[in-house]
Nucleic acid binder design. Sequence first.
DNA 1: GTATTTTGTTTAGCGTCGGCACAAAGTCAG
DNA 2: CTGACTTTGTGCCGACGCTAAACAAAATAC
Lengths: 398, 398
Amino acid sequence: MERGRGALGPALELVHTGRAPTRAVLTSELGVTRATAGAVAAELEALGLITVDSRPTASAGSQGRPSHRLFVDEHGPVVLAAQIHADGYRVALVGLGGRIVATTSGCGTIPADPAHVLAEAVAEGAALLRETGRRCLGAGLAVPSAVAEPDGEALNPLHLAWPAGAPVRALFLRALADAGIPGVTEAIGFTGNDVNLGALAEHRHGAGRGARDLLCVASGHRGVGGALVLDGRLHSGSSGLALEVGHLTVNPEGAPCHCGSRGCLDVEADPLAFLAAAGRTPGPEGSLLHQAADLLRNDYADPGVRAAADLLIDRLGLGIAGLVNILNPDRIILGGLHRALVEADPERLRAVVADRSLWGRSGGVPILPCSLDHNSLVGAAELAWQPVLDDPLVVVER
Amino acid sequence: MERGRGALGPALELVHTGRAPTRAVLTSELGVTRATAGAVAAELEALGLITVDSRPTASAGSQGRPSHRLFVDEHGPVVLAAQIHADGYRVALVGLGGRIVATTSGCGTIPADPAHVLAEAVAEGAALLRETGRRCLGAGLAVPSAVAEPDGEALNPLHLAWPAGAPVRALFLRALADAGIPGVTEAIGFTGNDVNLGALAEHRHGAGRGARDLLCVASGHRGVGGALVLDGRLHSGSSGLALEVGHLTVNPEGAPCHCGSRGCLDVEADPLAFLAAAGRTPGPEGSLLHQAADLLRNDYADPGVRAAADLLIDRLGLGIAGLVNILNPDRIILGGLHRALVEADPERLRAVVADRSLWGRSGGVPILPCSLDHNSLVGAAELAWQPVLDDPLVVVER
DNA sequence: GTATTTTGTTTAGCGTCGGCACAAAGTCAG
DNA sequence: CTGACTTTGTGCCGACGCTAAACAAAATAC
């Protein structure tokens, strides 16, 4: 009864992204018959990826026989996700549905040598796998740098003190092999930029769900990154270097940037710029984002803070308007400090973008704060889950 | 023997884009068996879309039995394509493969009233259909304006003296119905921006063939337009308004633009700007492009012309570099005056773009002149062909 | 309690494609 | 010229993945 092979992947993706709570929805979303949907669900259940709750559901209103409900299997396999950031790393086991099963962080570690940090992070992941006894189907890594394809090199890990061009994917794969992660015997490890992966996670499980063309802009501690999801797929360009939005000019008379230009988004709309505009002395590099976000959340009544926020919103709005003119997305999600900015004053940024973009006057694009904790980490997991979503049958051979 | 239904569309697309000269290539490109490829080719031939030449080909070198060759059927059905521009319109019948079968132009007409111009153009198309006796499977229209989805309104037909927001798609459909185009009984008419459609045509049949992420930039008589083809599909954004590149800032101290900013690409890198920089008095609006291009081609030795060209290349290069940082395309194609610019000095523009883009230092993106005559027209035809390429069986019901 | 609606399951059947065998049409070596 | 080899085209069969249709199950509506 090997029914429903071709629809297996799309079906799992629907359950994974929370868009198929029942077999009935699966039927209509996939455009297949009930028979096929049932067979697909049965096979996914047999593969240990989803569970079916056929108890007499606490029916809600509508007529007819109530649907059995479909869940991602809470005890199913996981993938290993790791994120490197300015002040340490974070590792997690992530199940289908973007659910974080277990997590550890190594904060305070200065990640000077990439190989060393990756080995440490992967070792923590291996420990989590041993503790939980979960089966591991892959691994993904998020780094705060552009990652060049096809070799997976970190081109500008400026805030990590890594050498430019560090071959992070190769190092990550090496670390996975050395740690003897069970199930990851082959080269099943993926690496991407943290903002890109955060955007992917938001699109699948967060504020970006349902958007067709999703633009994300986010600050780290220093600088500004962007990402674009088109038709459910990350657009990272032909060499993985798309959406380098940090060097859009937003203030022609602004501060000089290391790129040689002046008034780039990178130096005009990041946490350091905000703290300077608000007249505060910045703390250590690895805490700038939290310092700025806390200031914004706690002291928004302070006129100086308010003025600094307004200035940043103007600059950011100009940059985003330029992106809107080029990309015409149907939703925009902001992360990092920009998330705090849009939460502090949702209307002002929308108005600036609508005013500065060419066709924004009639409505404008929805601009939302990101909605997931650790979205880069979840996005790294998405990368690792992708082969399974493309063809769920690969799980039998791992 | 109804074999090869699912692969029918991809197969026709391969022949259409000239990437499947033989059944053998079809087999490998589609990833199917020879049996399936043969059945697919037979069915496409039965549909009257392709022809198979099974004569003993003037074999070229390699061993084994020579392949029969596949051609687009020269006498097969066509689509009607129309293009409206500043100084008139052009109409053509376009077959598969982007081949223009018959064409007329109505130059000198000032297209003041959109309904009138479209009716006239479509009437010419109907006449061509009668003369040639071809079967018509659809119609496409290219206009020099952003076209808003989902209603198909021309938002900024600045150079046509049309009212902003003119419902061009509806008017086009009305004109098709009124002309009684045989085979276009239903609403099978498509409308798009001319630069977008030109990019689509270049990607399928011209200098963009084989590119994955293709960026096009082109000037008309006034202003600059852009277009992006991703994975073979035109990216026109969620509302059809993507790639409005004319208002990228390329000269902070530059001339004021009607958008309210200064130094936009629109006013710094179009034919008018070039003529001004070269110290020539511009002719009538509808001839600026030809005047500028002729000047560039014939008087490039003139120091003033040379200096004006260098200035324009610098400005254009800065704008393109910004796009490269955001989109990371693997090829760039230039049209209009910019085509003449890159033909005059291919190396300079490449160098400017590489220097001003973040990761361009290691090589840079290939920048090519467009290679098709009337690429917007051919692109409009592509729009009309798309339903047939998606499912060739639709031809039996038209 | 019966009719209606919606969902899940079983069975039969069909269409599409892969695998295989064989034929056809060329090159290459002698 | 002949035979071995290589590559392409085609006919046949079976497997796989789906639809269609009938039936069963579980709720609401009257």
